[in-house]
Nucleic acid binder design. Structure first.
Lengths: 207, 207
DNA sequence: ACCTGAACACCGTTCAAGT
DNA sequence: ACCTGAACACCGTTCAAGT
């Protein structure tokens, strides 16, 4: 599998740097992340990372990209595990449940990797790398599909057409923000999530 | 008002540093903000800021605190300008409108000062300064009051008690995030905001 | 192809010393 | 009280040179 001789060094420096970087990110935040320190931890000179990442931002982008891939996988897995949604189709409860499942998965990711998620958002907005926006879109394609299907089945109001999709995304984003900052208003995160989805389905108006 | 003689230097270095800092923040982001550069721009030595801010984070905190004060003022002003809400009281439309007004004001702030808002959130979460969380609470006290009053008047579903407040905050946060990252799904920000508030009031379910 | 190591131009922070 | 300026320990980035 691996040759015993190490011509210069590190079988796969790139992977090692990313692994260490995520560790440091989680423990000390983006500001605490130094290329030179990563190089030191990997046992290479401070110039070595240059061969795998053009600059610090490139390493950050790679970290974010990997984060999106894992987030997408988790979201998809959560929805898959919840059933495929075209069985008997009891109409309404299914959408509420599936939205809740999705929101929970997203919030769980936000709680597990707050610094990484923050990095992902920042990288998507500020870095020029368009693979990041693509990865973001891919990760959130599932709820948009979910809503479209529900609308076709009549499980959610059809004349809302496409304009509620953004609203739902706003709610998901907001939930993740509130959860990861601990602004849950004194209740459990799970309760916050299901209450919010319920509120969204039901509306604030009386009746 | 001001003595013509400048014993050492800068009438009010603290204010000058903050002013410059916000400028740099808006134009080059937090990472582009250097204490030494600020000192240079103010015409003082690099050690001078130390007398007004213990370290870089303290300056960032001060910036965030000021941001919260201005955000709060803008949100309150927007709601005040919209009427006091206990006139005739036509019941429903009032809440929708006032929530929309509030959301628009918040989103406008997010669009005007994206970097500052990001700094505010980060500072609130990561810095130890509890005045920041207090400032955050104060800024968002208005919509919580608004909901409480609406519930008393029966303008929103009463048995939702306090558990929708967080939901509404989540929506507001999410809207600001989406707007400031340009993720508006191809429509205007104003439309996104009013659609989302409408969706929230009405609910996703048919009928 | 991958890594080293010196070099350059920056940082934040500390602290004696000045006025 | 407020500011200076040297000092220290870091950075990111570049680039010849090595293997």
């Amino acid at each position: 599998m691996s040759t015993p001789s190490r011509p210069y060094h590190h079988g796969d420096l790139r992977a090692a740097l990313l692994r260490q970087a995520e560790d440091v990110l989680a423990r000390r935040g983006v500001d605490g992340l130094s290329l030179r320190e990563l190089a030191r931890a990997a046992g290479v000179s401070h110039g070595a990372p240059r061969h795998h990442f053009r600059d610090r931002q490139a390493l950050l982008d790679a970290l974010a990209l990997d984060g999106y891939a894992r987030l997408g996988a988790r979201l998809d897995a959560a929805l898959d595990g919840d059933g495929d949604g075209d069985g008997d189709g009891d109409g309404d409860g299914n959408v509420t449940e599936r939205l809740t499942v999705f929101a929970r998965a997203y919030v769980a990711f936000a709680l597990d990797h707050p610094a990484l998620l923050g990095l992902m958002h920042r990288a998507k907005d500020e870095s020029g790398d368009e693979r990041l926006t693509a990865a973001n879109d891919a990760a959130f394609a599932a709820p948009v599909r979910l809503l479209a299907e529900a609308r076709e089945r009549g499980a959610i109001d059809p004349d809302t057409s496409g304009r509620v999709d953004m609203s739902v995304l706003a709610v998901l984003q907001g939930l993740a923000v509130l959860a990861s900052t601990g602004t849950t208003g004194g209740r459990s995160v799970d309760a916050l999530v299901s209450d919010t989805v319920a509120t969204l389905m039901r509306g604030l108006r009386p009746r």
